[in-house]
Amino acid sequence: MIDAILDRKWLASLLFALLLIILWQCMDVFELLPSYVLSPWDILDALVATTVDGTLPLASVQSVLLQLSGFAVGAIAGVVLGLTAGVSRWAEDFIDPVVSLTYPLPKIALFPVVVIWFGYTDFSRALVIATSCFFPVFVNAYAGTRSIEPRLLWVARNADAGKARIFLQVILRAAMPAVSNGIRISLALSFILTYATETLGASAGGLGNMIEDGFNDLQYGPLWAGIVAFAILGLVADRIWGRLSALWTRGQLVEAMGRV
């Protein structure tokens, strides 16, 4: 019996998670939880309540719009520059040193600087999210392009393929798994930064602001609803990207993780 469950990994962990949730609910029944830890049932209640009064959907849309705009700009810039640096030595010499120097800086530290110029606006937020998202995508796209198997290029040259064709049909395809990994890391990062930038400064809107307000006003319902919404968004975005990238990396080996 136990063997059969352990063989199905998802089933074992699902049962384990259920057990934890039941335990959590029981702790509430015996009043062992502090006031700010809601029981699973109360969290569900809060989710329904904030959905019905419209605050949760509104905040989610605001957050997703902010996250998507920053992420898209950063990721696209990362892919374009990463591939360029991987393919051209000139571009590499100009881009790589700058990226290596700025890479270890926690990009969120730029937020207070940007705020001095543009205030606590969505533009400032998107700018910082985009900057953060650029780096993992760039680093992985660059590495993916550079680490292409040289014999594959020989095969292409043997067939007398032109430069544009080699770039589109060989280099780009070979770099796809690495690019995908970079984008996946950036996607996770974009949610962290969306939360961070929305929490800082008043009048932000979005889920981060909802959580922050809940915290300040001791409104634990909206606080938990915001946290759960963030979790669901992060998970769903990751799953969607996983499915999408599986389509165009078919046949290729995708490593579990690229560089953050």
């Binding site: 469950i5 352990l6 063989d7 199905r8 990994k9 998802w10 074992a12 962990s13 699902l14 384990f16 998670a17 996946r184 996607l187 996770a188 949610f191 962290i192 969306t194 939360y195 961070a196 889920l207 981060g208 959580i211 915001g226 946290i227 963030f230 979790a231 992060g234 998970l235 975005a237 990751d238």
Partner: peptide
Amino acid sequence: SVLEPLVSATYPIPKLA
């Protein structure tokens, strides 16, 4: 069996929240 799927599944969640 018990932990790996849980850890993988919760990896993309923004824990900072």
